[in-house]
C-alpha cells in the first residue's frame, strides 16, 4: 500500500511540475504541450475511436508476429542446444544479429514484402525470435543432469526423455524468453509502424508529428509506455513468478 501511495504522490508532483513549467516558460502546445493538452488529445482520440482502431491494429500485428517468433525461437533454441555444430555456426550468427536492432531490416523488408502489414510483422518476428532462441537454448542446456539421470533410471530415454523431462525442466527459461520476446517485439512494432503505414499506434504518432500535433504525439507515447508496462506487470511477471516458485527456483 505504501508503495502505491508513494508512486501516486510522485506522479502527481511530476504532472503539476510539468504543467507549471510549461505555463511559466510560455511555450505553445506545438512545441511543448501541457499535461492538460495531452489529456484533451487522449480524450479526443478515444472519442473519435482513432486510438481504438490503432490499438486493435497494433495488437493484431503484435500477436501474429509474436506467435511466429515464439515458435521459431523454441525450434531454433532446441536445435542450438542439441547440435554442437549448429550452436557453433548458426549460434554465432544469432548472437551477432542480436546486437542489430531489428528496425534496420525495414528497408529490406519493404523491398521484399512491400510497404504493408507483412513488412512490419517481419520486423516484429525478428525482434522476438532472437531473444526467444537464446533463452530457449539456455533453458535446455541448463537442465539439471540429476533430472536426466533420475529419468534414465526410470526407463526414460530419447524423445520421451526430451518431451517429459528436458523440455518441462526448461520451462522457467522459456517463460523469461517469452517475456523478453514480448518486450522486444513491442519496441520493434512501434518502430516499424512509425516508418510504415497505418492504422496503428506508431503510425498515428508519425501522422500527428506531420501535422505538428505534439499533444497527440505525447499522448501516444504515454499509451505505448503504459501498455508495455501493464502487460509486463499484470501478465508476464506474475506468470514468471509462479513458474519460478513451482520449479523451486525461488523460495516463496
Amino acid at each position: 500500500m505504501q508503495r502505491i501511495i508513494k508512486q501516486l504522490v510522485f506522479f502527481i508532483i511530476l504532472l503539476v511540475a510539468w504543467e507549471g513549467l510549461v505555463r511559466a516558460g510560455g511555450w505553445t502546445p506545438d512545441v511543448m504541450p501541457k499535461p492538460t493538452d495531452v489529456w484533451q488529445a487522449l480524450v479526443r482520440g478515444f472519442g473519435d475511436k482513432t486510438l481504438i482502431y490503432d490499438l486493435v491494429a497494433s495488437f493484431q500485428r503484435l500477436f501474429i508476429g509474436l506467435l511466429i517468433s515464439l515458435m521459431l525461437g523454441i525450434g531454433l533454441g532446441i536445435l542450438l542446444a542439441k547440435s554442437k555444430t549448429a550452436d557453433e555456426t548458426l549460434g554465432s550468427l544469432i548472437l551477432a544479429l542480436q546486437s542489430v536492432p531489428s528496425i534496420v531490416w525495414l528497408p529490406l523488408a519493404i523491398m521484399w514484402f512491400g510497404l504493408n502489414e507483412k513488412a512490419v510483422i517481419f520486423i516484429v518476428v525478428l525482434g522476438g525470435t532472437l531473444v526467444m532462441t537464446i533463452n530457449m537454448r539456455m533453458g535446455i542446456k541448463n537442465v539439471s543432469p540429476l533430472y536426466i539421470r533420475a529419468a534414465q533410471t526410470m526407463g526414460s530415454r530419447g524423445l520421451d526423455l526430451f518431451l517429459k523431462v528436458i523440455f518441462p525442466a526448461a520451462v522457467p527459461y522459456a517463460v523469461t524468453g517469452v517475456r523478453l520476446a514480448w518486450a522486444f517485439a513491442w519496441r520493434a512494432l512501434m518502430a516499424g509502424e512509425i516508418l510504415s503505414t497505418g492504422p496503428g499506434l506508431g503510425y498515428t504518432l508519425k501522422y500527428a508529428s506531420d501535422f505538428g500535433d505534439m499533444s497527440l504525439v505525447i499522448a501516444v507515447m504515454i499509451l505505448i509506455g503504459v501498455i508495455g508496462t501493464a502487460v509486463d506487470y499484470a501478465f508476464f511477471q506474475r506468470v514468471e513468478k509462479n513458474v519460478m516458485r513451482r520449479w523451486g527456483l525461488e523460495s516463496s
Partner: peptide, 17 residues
C-alpha cells in the same frame, strides 16, 4: 539403466512440474 534397478540419489530429484 533400467527399471529393474531403482535409484535414490542424495537429492530427491523429484520433477518440480
Amino acid at each position: 539403466p533400467g527399471k529393474d534397478r531403482g535409484m535414490v540419489f542424495q537429492q530427491a530429484a523429484l520433477f518440480p512440474w
